[in-house]
Design a protein around this nucleic acid. Sequence first.
DNA 1: TGACCCATGTCAGCATTCTGACATAGCGTG
DNA 2: CACGCTATGTCAGAATGCTGACATGGGTCA
Lengths: 148, 148
Amino acid sequence: MGQEGVGVDLETSLGYLLKEASSALRAAMEEVLRPLGMSVTHYSCLELLAQRPGLSNSELARGAFVTRQTMNVLLQALERDGYVTRPEQAPVGKALPTRLTPSGRRSLEKASAAVRSVEARMLAGLTGPEQAEAFRILQSMVRSLRGS
Amino acid sequence: MGQEGVGVDLETSLGYLLKEASSALRAAMEEVLRPLGMSVTHYSCLELLAQRPGLSNSELARGAFVTRQTMNVLLQALERDGYVTRPEQAPVGKALPTRLTPSGRRSLEKASAAVRSVEARMLAGLTGPEQAEAFRILQSMVRSLRGS
DNA sequence: TGACCCATGTCAGCATTCTGACATAGCGTG
DNA sequence: CACGCTATGTCAGAATGCTGACATGGGTCA
């Protein structure tokens, strides 16, 4: 199982570990959201709208890290099911500001609590300063990756 | 844009930031792998095989964070294209140990260099101790999420 | 004003990944 | 030995997300 000195070395690669952590988080979220009949992307969209009402389809897509085509499909389903509303006509440009309906807000509440408990579990073994350090480091990684 | 005190608060959520970082890393990897005609999963599989020759389909799936069905589809394509080989019959049980062909090893070399450069860029703004701390923290997160 | 560029919403088709299901091999336990 | 339990490989179908393409709205600049 030795290292021939030329590979990326998965055992010590921060990139691999980052993917592993993200994958574990996603799996844990799916596990608690499934009983609520909600997917991660589904939840992400509602959470974004709760915190930033009036976001457009494209803005939601960027916030949930999917393409605007993918988010559009999701939004049409959410609109059909009565969780969100969009005006018929754009108040300015083509962007349609989206808002949660009371039903959507209600549906989000349970999901949000479930996701918060997952995040709490993830951070259980870490001190406050460690969490702050992690935040700073992850932000640096994002900035470096986007920069170029 | 205020916080009503009940949400997850995307601006300060480590979970959200983790997804953001992972998404940025994946995008950066796709960008450098695309010119080589290789996807991230594709690369992950070859890299795993380079470092741990003889891994089975299921083991590769776990290492690349996909289902064994997904990995099976990929392996069949890689085998058809001559990048990997699997014995006709399992030496023990049903597990088929997979190995890189010279062609697969050659194909991996460029990709591995490209991915290493992406990882280096990601870590550019971080000191050695910071990277070590990040490693420790991410491992703790994975352990906590898997534990329950 | 008109040409150009960029962002947006949306449709269609394709790729990737997942869930469900089945058969089989090894392993432990009664 | 016979029975369960688990892990594995594999096929089929469904869900999910992406790329490509097009039309439209708004801003910039000559």
